[in-house]
Simulated scan of single mutants.
Amino acid sequence: MGTSSQQRTGGIRTGARPTAPLRPSRRLITTVAVVVLLIAGIALANRGGASSGTPEAAVDPMSVEIPHSSEGAQSAAAKMAAVLGSEKMFDPIRRGDIIQRIVVPEQRLAVQKAVDADYTTAFNAKLGLDENGKPPAGATFVSRSMPAGVTVRHYDSREATIDVWCAGLLGLTGKGAPKELPVTTSWFTQTLTVRWTDEGWRLAEFTQQDGPEPGAGEYGQAPQL
């Protein structure tokens, strides 16, 4: 979600940031492309949060069949990263539904406890939301995680660990939005371990850390595109 430097976790595994090289020309292209994504995300939110795709896909990010391959695992991880950073996570009922849909059965309870410990009523209040994740009248709540690149840490036919580098939007917009809670941007990396099950790729563990930001630090910190 990229809201602070605090690491949010649905598992135990953590690790160092990826070290794949990123050439200057690619970095510039990435920055421009994600700025376009951020502008599009704000515009989308101001239209009331409408989304493309089928209604089924909007409810279940894993509803479209994803292949049993490295590319499939990367696609699944990116979809999971996006939904884990969405507005739905601030609503206890919708959050529970997401966990049931994307997490491996044996880890659902542990992941549910971990995310519930993060998404508290007090945390919602800091963002101007009620206990069910609803914004004030006349305002639209924006929470977007937009994958910009992935790095495969490990892959085999049973399990994969993948870094998903994301641009994030978080805040309130619209005529009724408090000026002190504007939509802000952030960069963060989710590390997701996905496991192949009878239902396809499902989430086993995840952690999140801030950064890296485009153009900041030494080359070699950002995930590959």
Score class of each variant (00 low, 15 high):
Val59Thr: 10
Thr161Val: 03
Met89His: 06
Ala45Pro: 01
Phe123Asn: 12
Pro223Cys: 15
Thr173Ala: 14
Lys79Cys: 06
Val83Ala: 12
Val34Phe: 10
Thr121Tyr: 11
Gly176Tyr: 08
Met89Lys: 12
Pro223Gln: 11
Lys79Asp: 00
Trp187Glu: 01
Asp116Pro: 07
Leu170Gln: 11
Arg27Trp: 00
Gly215Glu: 05
Ala43Phe: 12
Thr161Asp: 07
Arg101Glu: 00
Gln209Gly: 02
Phe123Leu: 15
Ala77Glu: 01
Thr19Leu: 04
Pro67Thr: 10
Pro92Met: 05
Gln74Asp: 00
Pro136Met: 06
Val35Gly: 03
Gly211Phe: 05
Glu87Gly: 06
Thr121Phe: 10
Gln221Arg: 12
Ile12Tyr: 05
Ser52His: 05
Lys88Tyr: 02
Arg95Met: 10
Leu22Asn: 06
Thr31Cys: 09
Ala76Gly: 13
Asp156Val: 02
Asn124Phe: 06
Gly48Tyr: 10
Ser70Glu: 15
Gly10Tyr: 04
His68Glu: 13
Pro92Glu: 09
Asp116Trp: 01
Phe90His: 02
Gly49Ile: 11
Glu106Cys: 04
Arg144Phe: 04
Glu199Ala: 14
Ala204Arg: 14
Ile98Gly: 03
Gln6Lys: 14
Ile39Cys: 10
Glu205Asn: 14
Gly41Met: 09
Glu213Phe: 09
Gly53Pro: 00
Thr121Ala: 15
Gly72Lys: 11
Asp116Cys: 05
